[in-house]
């Protein structure tokens, strides 16, 4: 039973979400992550590593830092403060995976960690691979090798 009168009255008592504020925070914090990534790449270039190899190394460094932060228990506080700025980059992916692991560590390595590790990130991996395949195919058809 949908009660339109109830909906009307209930909608008068909605919370004011600070969407613009949140977006600005996420924009800045996400931008800072991007900047840090670029700095890491520049440092790696200084060591004579070429750019194609430097990018995965930078990503691995971020995954490590985010996972460690999750494990030590402060990354979730940062997420609460900086919101999607930390969740959208690779740090969010690592954080989602590690936090799922931590949740299920008591159920053991098979039924706990193993089967729940990709609870949140499974979709990201699946659709990431599927879309990479599709777009890769399209690019191959249009642009050739």
């Amino acid at each position: 039973m949908r009660n339109t009168k109830y909906e009307r009255i209930a909608n008068e008592h909605k919370a004011d979400e600070n969407r613009i504020g949140n977006a600005i925070i996420a924009f800045i914090s996400g931008g800072v992550i991007g900047m840090l990534g670029e700095i890491i790449i520049e440092v790696l270039l200084g060591f004579g590593i070429n750019r194609t190899e430097a990018i995965p190394i930078m990503i691995v460094i971020f995954i490590f830092i985010a996972s460690l932060g999750t494990a030590l228990g402060f990354f979730d506080n940062l997420v609460t403060k900086f919101k999607c700025g930390l969740l959208i980059p690779i740090t969010g992916f690592a954080h989602a995976m590690t936090s799922s692991c931590l949740d299920y560590k008591n159920e053991g390595p098979i039924y706990g960690l193993g089967s729940n590790m990709f609870k949140l990130t499974g979709s990201v991996i699946l659709y990431g691979i599927v879309s990479a395949y599709i777009f890769g195919t399209i690019r191959y058809i249009i642009g050739g090798m």
């Binding site: 909605k14 919370a15 004011d16 979400e17 949140n22 999750t70 228990g73 990354f75 979730d76 506080n77 997420v79 609460t80 919101k83 999607c84 969740l87 954080h95 989602a96 590690t98 936090s99 799922s100 931590l102 949740d103 609870k119 949140l120």
Partner: peptide
Amino acid sequence: EKQFRYPTEYGAPRPKT
């Protein structure tokens, strides 16, 4: 949190309501 929402260490942003 674990049962109904996200992993406990995830700290997903949630609306004020």
